[in-house]
């Protein structure tokens, strides 16, 4: 006899236990098989309603949740800022109360303000899944990253990973740091000093301001997207200089392990943080990450749907 997640919401990886992470990853293995079928649909969430509430534009994450829900036969409704009352200045609280009146089972939220999913979770009976809030967390991205790594390496504990880029503004970095550490991985971060939050070392990660030593002996290199609009904002002078100092190219990769895995949460800026040869190279897992995203989100939807019964 197994058991679901003993929680209503998935707001971050920081408050997940290693057992919960393991359960989600294990469940995703079964979900991934469904993607290989001719008929990509199981009736598991028939009659359940999932609302994708996106306050920030996102194609891949929203689509991934939408496919995950639809493959499990849930009704999936997308609400984005451009097509809802959000633009009319409705508060998150009122939006939440309005949604509650429609009795959704799961609300997936993407928001530019950290903590917005917490507000929603407090308002709704439905399960709330954080699909990225400000620079805070993006738990399903971290889970799919772990899944992808485990799929390639068979294990997580003991692996070394270097996360390179704008750590300061990255919710992907935060969720990955918390989750990877829980699973026994060693995490390094690397980026311009202006984009490395102070006190990073107190999270138990090693901090590098040069990429060469950071990637020298790691099993995984995770490149983060550099936000083009941050150029000239005082954090780094130009993309050209950033690319020269921190971009991952074939030349730099020679310093890394032969079988190092390359990851990127996407969307990538080809030729800026990662060169096309590396992004499309044999050790690049970038497309595996996208594929596994659906399986992870199916697993999370399934486990939260059952978790509600356990909580009742």
């Amino acid at each position: 006899m197994g058991t679901g997640l003993k929680r209503k919401d998935l707001l971050g990886t920081r408050d997940l236990s290693p057992e919960e992470i393991g359960l989600i990853l294990d469940t995703a293995i079964s979900m991934k098989e469904i993607a290989s079928r001719d008929i990509k649909k199981v009736p598991t969430l028939r009659g359940k309603t999932i609302i994708n509430l996106f306050y920030e534009p996102s194609t891949r994450t929203r689509t991934s949740f939408e496919i995950a829900g639809k493959w499990m036969s849930a009704d999936v409704i997308n609400i984005s800022t451009s097509s809802s009352s959000v633009v009319k200045g409705e508060t998150l609280k009122d939006t939440g109360l309005t949604l509650q009146a429609m009795h959704p089972d799961v609300v997936v939220i993407r928001h530019s303000a950290a903590g917005a999913p917490q507000i929603l979770a407090g308002l709704l009976k439905a399960s709330v899944i954080n699909a990225g809030d400000g620079a805070h967390e993006h738990p399903t991205q971290a889970l799919l990253d772990l899944f992808t790594i485990r799929e390639k390496r068979g294990t997580l504990a003991g692996l070394k990973v270097a996360i390179v880029g704008d750590i300061l503004h990255s919710r992907v970095a935060r969720s990955n740091i918390f989750a990877m550490q829980k699973m026994g991985m060693q995490v390094r971060v690397c980026g311009p000093a202006t984009m490395l939050p102070r006190y990073m070392d107190r999270l138990g990660v090693e901090v590098f301001s040069r990429i060469e030593p950071a990637i020298a002996d790691v099993d995984i290199i995770m490149m983060l997207r550099i936000q083009l609009e941050r150029q000239g904002g005082g954090l780094f002078p130009t993309l050209r200089e950033y690319s020269k100092l921190f971009g991952l190219n074939l030349d730099r990769l020679k310093a890394a392990k032969q079988d190092v895995l390359i990851m990127h949460p996407g969307p990538i800026n080809r030729g800026v943080e990662i060169s096309p040869e590396v992004a499309d190279g044999p050790y690049s897992l970038i497309l595996n990450q996208v594929e596994n995203g659906v399986a992870i989100r199916m697993a999370v939807l399934y486990l939260l749907a059952g978790g509600q019964a356990a909580a009742n």
Partner: peptide, 15 residues
């Protein structure tokens, strides 16, 4: 406040 908590929460810090 810019510190460990702001680092974890991803909220912009005030040093």
């Amino acid at each position: 406040h810019e510190g460990l908590v702001s680092t974890e929460l991803g909220l912009q810090g005030i040093p």
